[in-house]
Design a protein around this nucleic acid. Structure first.
Lengths: 261, 261
DNA sequence: CGCCCGGCTTGACGCAGATCAATCCGATTG
DNA sequence: CAATCGGATTGATCTGCGTCAAGCCGGGCG
């Protein structure tokens, strides 16, 4: 049984330290910011149950940081792929392209989420990753992941879980694409976003869409006009309030009720 | 760029020993059949580049075998999940279920393919796996996989790749479901099956569909009637010859031409 | 053998969502 | 400030596929 809202890069693998309440997505990090063990979004990438020494090793994991300006690519399909990426702040879309030129958004990734796992198989990226706003990522080379994984059981297990979880998410997207109607898809999408914002300490009912209607439609397998119409319909039904990019969920239950028949 | 035919459980990770030409799906294994290194379908589950001693360890990997009769479940959603499965012979479908009862086929698995990777994340299976014909699987407990992975670099890397590959496949299914029309989906499905049969040493153009039209439709996000109509259409166009479960691909190029506008 | 039943095919019809098109809105730029 | 432009909304129409329904076909069983 899949949770109805497991759209894409879902909830964090481990819970986020609820004491940290990020206020801005562009905080300048303090001097020890490079230490993963001190990272604000460590909830997701940090495996639980590490010993003191394990934690020190873990801090050596991140090879580097990268800033990606809005509209620029983090990587492109065909690029050699030697790392996975952890979003520290910002918003990224991943797009897969078909041989004939058709393309489709395969996922959106926000702070605390991991992307690039699909490149591990072939050593080449199979999708484009583009920043939807200025974005800050940690770069984690596979090699280090492997090395550390051999030394630390918990780390290895964690990576396996992250990979498996990505499979589960894609699978629930398949279910959405294969068997839901337009309004169910949009409701599922909004609920999933809400959940993920909550996991990062933001409001569950009040957030900005960093992507266009067209990009939403692409992820959900529908046209931008249909996305827009469904938004309007939900608005008329007093379920949400939408002004351009700004979404306010008025009735979570109402959204939930849209799913399932 | 995704290959247009990467439907689901695609080509083997490592090439199949082309000398082995399986003639029946129900061969009685010789006495050393338990040794993975002697397995007929080892192409997929066997990592390349193992040393002599690694190989011996690898042989200890498979905990047990299981036979599943046609129509019976290999596992069900919610079952505790401690292993992955390698299909030795037979045919399995995996089905995910939505909270409201709707369900969808998430993949078909044939000889030489691995299933159950989605259960690794939570420790519970998130799908049902059902044998479409009498089926024979190897059971590989995670624990052993992890233990061996720590000792053998190649093994660990291989598992990561298998997982990542599953992500890629689900992703290309998302593309199919989100942006292809009915006849493109069916053509993609048939080409993918053809490829996979080839990888197992069977004919690329002449095979049996072990699943119903309804199950095909479920995987492809369409109704059984539509599947049937597309089959008829392809048949009229002299691209395939279909008699019930028996498919003969007359023109691979014709099928390929169906994809992409 | 004939009956039954699940799976498949084929036709007629309706509808959800695509397509096409006009307009609007807000942000950016000169 | 007006002009421009990408994105969003909304309406009118079209269409691919779902839905409903009637028959067919083949295999298992009494």
């Amino acid at each position: 049984m899949l949770a109805p809202v497991a759209i894409n890069s879902g909830s964090a693998a481990f819970k986020v330290d609820s004491a940290s309440t990020p206020s801005s997505q562009f905080v300048v990090q303090p001097s020890n910011a490079n230490a993963c063990s001190a990272c604000r979004v460590r909830g997701l990438c940090h495996p639980g149950g590490l010993s003191e020494s394990d934690t020190r090793q873990f801090d050596a994991l991140v090879f580097s940081r990268r800033r990606v300006k809005q509209g620029h690519a983090l990587y492109r399909a065909g690029d050699p792929c030697g790392s996975v990426y952890l979003v520290r702040s910002g918003f990224v879309k991943a797009v897969v392209m078909h041989a004939d030129g058709r393309e489709q958004v395969s996922g959106f990734y926000m702070a605390g989420e991991m992307l690039g796992l699909d490149g591990l198989a072939s050593g080449l990226h199979v999708s484009d990753a583009t920043a939807l706003i200025d974005t800050d990522v940690c770069v984690v080379p596979f090699e280090r992941l492997e090395t550390l994984g051999r030394e630390t059981q918990a780390m290895q297990r964690h990576l396996n879980r992250m990979l498996s979880q990505e499979v589960v998410r894609k699978q629930s997207m398949m279910l959405l694409l294969g068997s839901m109607r337009a309004d169910e898809r949009v409701a599922t999408f909004l609920l999933n976003l809400s959940q993920r914002f909550t996991a990062q300490g933001f409001s569950p009912s009040d957030f900005l869409l960093r992507m266009t209607r067209e990009e939403i439609g692409s992820l959900l397998g529908m046209k931008l006009e249909t996305v827009s119409r469904v938004f309007s319909k939900f608005q008329k039904a007093q379920i949400v309030k939408i002004e351009g990019k700004h979404v306010r969920i008025v009735s979570i239950e109402g959204l939930g009720a849209m799913i399932g028949h």
